[in-house]
Measured scan of single mutants.
Amino acid sequence: IRVFLPNKQRTVVNVRNGMSLHDCLMKALKVRGLQPECCAVFRLLHEHKGKKARLDWNTDAASLIGEELQV
Rank of each mutant, 00 (worst) to 15 (best):
P36Q: 07
C39T: 03
K49D: 15
L69W: 06
K51Q: 14
L44A: 10
L29W: 04
A53V: 15
V15H: 06
R16V: 13
Q35I: 08
K8E: 12
G66V: 02
N14H: 09
L29K: 05
R2M: 13
A62L: 08
L21P: 01
L69N: 06
A61L: 01
V31L: 11
A62Y: 11
F4G: 08
V41Q: 01
L5N: 04
V15C: 02
K52N: 13
L25V: 01
V41E: 02
L29R: 01
G66P: 03
W57L: 00
T11G: 02
G18N: 08
F42L: 03
N17I: 07
V3W: 00
R54Q: 14
T59Q: 13
Q9V: 08
V15N: 04
A53T: 13
N14Y: 09
A28K: 09
I1A: 01
L5R: 08
V15R: 03
L55H: 04
N7F: 04
N17Y: 13
V41C: 09
G50A: 09
A53P: 07
A62P: 03
R10H: 14
M26T: 12
I65D: 10
T11C: 10
A53W: 08
A61K: 03
L5E: 05
L45C: 15
K27G: 15
W57K: 00
R2K: 13
L25W: 01
T59L: 08
G18D: 04
V31K: 11
V12T: 11
F4L: 15
L34Y: 08
C38H: 14
T11K: 06
L69G: 01
L55E: 06
V41T: 04
A28N: 04
H48Y: 06
L55F: 00
K52L: 14
L34I: 06
H46R: 15
V13F: 01
C39A: 03
G66S: 00
S20P: 03
D60W: 01
K8S: 11
S20W: 05
D56L: 05
P6Q: 00
F42Q: 01
P6V: 01
K51L: 12
V3G: 02
D23N: 12
L29T: 03
K8Y: 02
G18R: 04
N7K: 06
F4M: 14
Q35A: 13
V15L: 01
N58T: 09
V71E: 03
T11E: 10
P6T: 00
K51N: 10
Q9P: 03
L64M: 08
L44K: 12
V13T: 04
R10P: 08
N7Q: 06
K30S: 12
L44T: 14
L64W: 01
N7W: 03
F4R: 08
A28Q: 06
K8G: 15
R16Y: 07
R54C: 06
L69E: 03
R16T: 12
R2V: 14
K52M: 14
T11P: 00
H46T: 12
L25K: 03
K49W: 03
V3F: 06
N58D: 13
V31M: 10
S20R: 08
V41G: 00
Q9G: 08
N58Y: 08
L5P: 00
A53D: 11
I65K: 03
V3K: 05
G33D: 07
L34Q: 02
Q9C: 05
N14S: 09
R54S: 13
H48C: 12
F4N: 12
L45S: 15
A61P: 03
N58E: 10
R43S: 05
Q70A: 06
A28D: 12
L44D: 08
D60H: 10
C39L: 02
M19A: 09
I1D: 03
F42A: 05
G66K: 07
V13A: 06
A28V: 14
A62G: 12
G50Q: 12
C38K: 14
F4D: 09
M19F: 07
T59H: 05
S20H: 00
R2S: 14
L25F: 07
H48D: 13
M26W: 15
K30A: 12
L69M: 01
L69H: 07
K49M: 11
F42G: 03
S63K: 12
H22L: 12
A40N: 14
M26Q: 14
L29M: 09
G18C: 06
V15W: 03
K8W: 01
H46C: 10
A53L: 13
D56I: 03
L45A: 13
V41S: 03
W57M: 04
V13P: 00
K27N: 07
V41H: 02
V71M: 06
K51E: 15
K52W: 13
A53K: 09
S20N: 10
A40Y: 11
A62Q: 13
D60K: 03
R16L: 09
G66I: 04
